[in-house]
Write a protein that binds this DNA or RNA. Structure first.
Lengths: 217, 217
DNA sequence: ATAATAAGTTAGATTAATCTAACAAAAAGA
DNA sequence: TCTTTTTGTTAGATTAATCTAACTTATTAT
């Protein structure tokens, strides 16, 4: 079927599409760490397979087939991450790298079994939704912490980024998914925000608070 | 480090070496399903990396480095198989295909965790020994059932082969690792053997009995 | 011992995924 | 608008892993 390389391109397109309507070759090549000509030629390949729409100089767009294929890879990735955390005792900062490799396993039963053993979870350890087996993605709507006002009482629901560094930063401050957060102050100058949670009081920069996705309590 | 392809060549050499002292390019190309020229050129590559000894027209031999590298891949494979059976509830006939893909994961901690969760097993679900972390292989000595005489009382310890078909054959007859077997008769004509175990009485062909590895009780 | 078969090698081509250099098109800024 | 910068494309080369065809060496069998 699709090579690991092709799968990685699809996945990158999937993630980029969720952030920006128009996905460029340039953005794609950057996130994948390849040159623009390389991305360009792979896009032609994916177009020939009916996985992306593409016209010269126009933005990239996944077809329905491409979207589904990508979602199923993301499903495998997120189920794996959840399995690693819940069943194997890994920390949420360790699982991305392993899942990145395990997600390419071609035996569906392997992931179905993880799903079953986990009790059909809907989110991964970073709060990202796990696509359904049919490729459907149930994207819950979360506000960013950075969009909250003073006095807000919210719950940390998901992260917009899951790099090791960011997760270590959160661990350092005892910030976990599900944490109850009280917005004590918002600094107008730099957008930093002071939150109180589980007997702690922390100042979070805008860069951090816009990556923390929350739901009202 | 080593590509998946290189890893598969090393693994094949490792397995072939345990059966035949002199490993040929031809045998290697057959088990890997590639042409002889392909195997030939990959062997030159592995030689350049110091993983095999090789002289034109001479048999192939893994170097110590190559042997260790191969053993570590086999370790990952067998730990994975054991994990799939013991922790995820797969049947012993389902695990080979999955392990074949999972074994290429590069994160050592993943396999270390499986090892720990399994309580440091020494054998995989088919009775094959799991190499140590340092690449050491503790190969226990087992006789073949086909070498037993009438009246022998033995225990099924391992399988010389683990194809889906063979495992299904054994499942059909309720033959599991650890089964107590009594040799009731050996047919001199075709070498078939009649065994009694857990209230069953079965006739096993030579082809089968020479793949059943046993230890005396 | 010689002929036939099997095994191993060389040469040359192919495909997927990548690169750099050079150029073209589009977008941004003055 | 016109220039500069960014983005995208084309052309051509490279590397890993594969193939087939043709040839050579080794082994086996009569």
């Amino acid at each position: 079927m699709a090579s690991q390389t092709e799968e990685n391109y699809l996945k990158a397109l999937f993630h980029l599409s969720s952030e920006q309507a128009a996905v460029s070759i340039s953005a794609l090549s950057t996130v994948l760490g390849v040159s623009k000509p390389t991305a360009n030629s792979m896009i032609k390949n994916l177009k020939d397979q009916g996985l992306v729409y593409y016209e010269k100089y126009k933005p990239l767009l996944l077809t329905d087939t491409g979207k589904k294929a990508a979602a199923l890879i993301v499903r495998k990735h997120r189920l794996t991450e959840m399995y690693l955390v819940k069943k194997m005792g890994f920390g949420w900062e360790e699982v991305h790298e392993i899942a990145e490799q395990v997600e390419h396993v071609k035996v569906a039963a392997f992931f179905d079994r993880m799903d079953e053993l986990l009790g059909y979870p809907t989110e991964d350890p970073h709060g990202s939704p796990i696509p359904e087996k049919d490729g459907t993605l149930n994207q819950p709507y979360y506000k960013r912490l950075s969009d909250c006002e003073k006095g807000a009482h919210v719950k940390l629901a998901a992260l917009k980024q899951s790099s090791k560094e960011f997760l270590a930063f959160l661990d350092d401050r005892g910030l976990n998914l599900g944490a109850d957060l009280f917005v004590e102050a918002v600094e107008p100058f730099d957008g930093s925000i002071i939150v109180r949670y589980s007997n702690k009081r922390e100042s979070l920069s805008l860069k951090v608070s816009e990556k923390l996705m929350i739901e009202e309590v």
